[in-house]
């Protein structure tokens, strides 16, 4: 299996959660070229988050093959994860959380800095630049527990940027954001892609697909059911029909 030219290459990939009999994703064939911006859409429970977790090796796949950045995802979990930025689906932040924004952003670099090494000045420069890119440089010393949903989402994106990854996996990056914050995050993601980063984003909201997205993949019940260029996919109405049918259309 040669995945050297592709940022991500999956062939017949399936994953079953412990104790479950039905695969959360099944027979996934997907190739993401370096520099691509691909959106995976589908209703809740389609397997979108599972797909991201399998790609960065957090969840082991049960059959099929996959490579990320030319490395087998089943054998190089830690190595791959250091080169992939992951923005987790917006989780409920503890309002008393005792972490400052700059430390949360630096924690994104913890893996790549390595064990028994302290962050150097260069690392803090990267953290400050990441905060600046998301417009949160003045929040560096603020506790994350005091942030709004939109601000917190930007910090999570800054955390991924600080990792200086080649690929971004974005899980519902627009969830819980107001219109202005959505616009800010949309611009930011497009800028990252223009800068050469590969982006694989999942969403259940067709209205939030950024214009820079080149290709869309529609998932349902763990399978890829359709894919194609963004504009074509949006025109067919297949996505809207499916989301409406499954009750995920906002």
């Amino acid at each position: 299996m040669n995945g050297a030219q592709d940022a991500i290459l999956l062939r017949g990939l399936s994953a079953v959660y412990e104790g479950e009999s039905v695969p959360a994703i099944r027979d996934i064939d997907m190739s993401v070229a370096s520099g691509d911006f691909i959106c995976v859409v589908g209703p809740n429970g389609a397997g979108k988050t599972t797909l991201l977790e399998v790609i960065n090796g957090i969840l082991p796949h049960t059959s099929g093959e996959g490579t990320a950045l030319g490395l087998s995802i089943s054998e190089n979990g830690d190595r791959i994860r250091k080169r992939i930025g992951y923005v987790i689906q917006n989780f409920e932040i503890d309002p008393l959380s005792p972490f400052l924004c700059r430390n949360v952003v630096m924690s994104g670099r913890a893996g790549m800095i390595g064990l028994l090494r302290f962050p150097a000045k260069h690392d803090w420069d990267v953290v400050n630049r990441a905060l600046s890119l998301v417009g949160m440089e003045s929040y560096a010393s603020r506790p994350v527990g005091k942030l709004s949903g939109g601000e917190f989402q930007k910090i999570l994106i800054a955390r991924a940027i600080a990792q200086e990854p080649e690929v971004y996996l974005l899980d519902e990056p627009f969830s819980n954001l107001d219109i202005k914050a959505r616009g800010d995050v949309d611009r930011l993601i497009c800028e990252l892609n223009r800068g050469g980063s590969t982006i694989l984003m999942v969403s259940h909201d067709v209205g939030s697909i950024p214009l820079s997205c080149t290709r869309m993949i529609l998932m349902d019940r763990g399978r890829i059911v359709a894919e194609g260029p963004r504009n074509e996919m949006l025109q067919t109405g297949e996505i809207s029909d499916l989301l409406r049918c499954r009750g995920s259309e906002p």
């Binding site: 250091k82 987790i88 924690s107 994104g108 913890a110 893996g111 955390r159």
Partner: peptide
């Protein structure tokens, strides 16, 4: 999960 995703064991 984020710690794991950034390459920490």
């Amino acid at each position: 999960k984020l710690a794991q995703a950034s390459g920490i064991n």
